[in-house]
């Protein structure tokens, strides 16, 4: 119940800050761009668009959200409230995933008439969004302003995004799938193209594990560096 209330309150906050409105504008923008592409090219471009924007929006916004709440004293209140740090972070991850799922689904439904594997698609959006939001929580520790946060995300983004190009290369680069972003991209592409059940199951399990480990690390960092400010 506590967690549910935290999620609802986060969704309300995000809606008040214009997240949903801005993603309506961004979705329209992508629909215009994607409408120009031929159907054969769309099968590659569409998962790349969904992966590169709605799925990673958590990384962009979580820095500002935590910094604002820190400034407003919300985080200090957290220490004496029944809401645990873990629940606070899960609420953020889930609420940002809701925006990601809504934007990703809208872009996909409105731009392609081809059938896709919706289960894989939604799993991939949620797990990718979780990973990037949790990375955002970790990066945020030690940042005093938004510019500092944005700058600190650049090396993380490079580390997560550059290995994604391995998908274009030889099968010898498959071990790079151990990088969570590569696994997430493979799963996303799998929703649009052919993928074996055991590969999709393996990727899903791996991403769940990555989310869990990152969550544990994010809770530890958040408590040490943000709540108790060691």
């Amino acid at each position: 119940m506590r967690l549910l209330n935290a999620i609802i309150s986060d969704i309300r906050f995000q809606s008040k800050q214009g997240f949903y409105l801005v993603y309506v504008i961004i979705t329209v923008m992508y629909l215009i761009i994607l409408s120009l592409l031929p159907e054969s090219f769309l099968r590659i471009a569409l998962p790349l668009v969904v992966f590169s924007d709605p799925s990673v929006l958590g990384l962009f916004f979580i820095g500002g959200i935590i910094m604002l709440e820190k400034g407003q004293g919300v985080i200090q209140v957290l220490v004496v409230s029944p809401l645990t740090t873990g629940e606070y972070i899960i609420a953020k991850v889930i609420s940002l995933s809701v925006v990601a799922v809504a934007a990703a689904s809208a872009i996909t439904i409105l731009s392609s008439s081809e059938t896709i594997n919706w289960f894989l698609f939604l799993t991939s959006v949620v797990l990718t969004s979780g990973i990037f939001t949790l990375f955002g929580v970790v990066i945020n520790a030690g940042c005093n302003n938004v510019n500092q946060y944005i700058l600190k995300t650049i090396p993380y983004m490079l580390l997560l995004v550059l290995p994604c190009f391995s998908i274009l290369g030889s099968p010898l680069l498959y071990p790079l799938t151990l990088v969570p972003s590569v696994a997430a991209l493979r799963l996303m592409l799998g929703a649009f193209t052919q993928i074996t059940w055991y590969e999709s199951a393996g990727l899903t399990l791996y991403l769940l594990l990555a989310n869990y480990l990152l969550y544990r690390y994010a809770v530890k960092i958040f408590e040490n560096k943000i709540v108790f400010q060691d």
Partner: peptide
Amino acid sequence: NKVKALTYAKGLNSFAL
């Protein structure tokens, strides 16, 4: 506030279109 600023920044990037 900072969050709204990030939202604005995200939306304003669409101007590039």
